[in-house]
C-alpha cells in the first residue's frame, strides 16, 4: 500500500468578536482535539510529530511592510496544521470531516505532497 503525505491546515476567524467561542466551548474543544488527534495516531496515520504554533506571528505585505499578528485585514487565519499519511484525497477528507475546527465555524484545507516525478 502506497501511503501519500497530506497537509491539513485548519483556519478560522479569530478576528470577529461575535464569532469567538465561549470559554466553555473552548474548554470542551480541548478534549475534542485530543480525541481527534489520538484517533489519527491510533490509526498510525500521523506523518510527522505535532508542532504547536505561536498564536501571534507576523505578516509581510507586498510593499514589504511588516505587521504583528495574523489578524490584519484578512478574516481567517491559521489555527494549526498537521501532516497525515493516507492512501488518497478521499481518506484525507474523511479525517478532516471530524476535525473540531469545523464545529467552531472554521475550515480545513488539504494539500497532497508532490514529488519531482509526479
Amino acid at each position: 500500500m502506497i501511503m501519500e503525505e497530506f497537509i491539513l491546515i485548519f483556519r478560522r476567524d479569530f478576528n470577529t468578536k461575535e464569532e469567538q467561542p465561549s470559554p466553555e466551548q473552548l474548554q470542551a474543544s480541548v478534549k475534542l482535539w485530543q480525541d481527534w488527534l489520538g484517533g489519527i495516531g491510533a490509526q498510525n496515520k500521523l506523518a510527522k510529530p505535532l508542532q504547536r504554533w505561536d498564536t501571534a506571528g507576523k505578516i509581510v505585505k507586498s510593499n514589504k511592510s511588516v505587521t504583528d499578528g495574523p489578524y490584519a485585514e484578512i478574516k481567517e487565519s491559521i489555527g494549526g496544521l498537521i501532516f497525515v499519511k493516507v492512501d488518497n484525497y478521499d481518506e484525507a477528507v474523511s479525517i478532516a470531516k471530524d476535525c473540531p475546527i469545523l464545529q467552531l465555524g472554521g475550515n480545513v484545507e488539504i494539500r497532497k505532497a508532490t514529488h519531482a516525478e509526479d
Binding site: K31, Q34, L37, G38, G41, A42, N44, L46, P49, L50
Partner: peptide
C-alpha cells in the same frame, strides 16, 4: 487514561497503545 493514550499515540504509534 484516554487523554494519556491520545498523547502517547500522538507521540509514537504502537498497535497495543491503539
Amino acid at each position: 487514561i484516554l487523554q494519556l493514550y491520545n498523547q502517547l499515540l500522538i507521540f509514537e504509534y504502537s498497535p497495543i497503545a491503539a
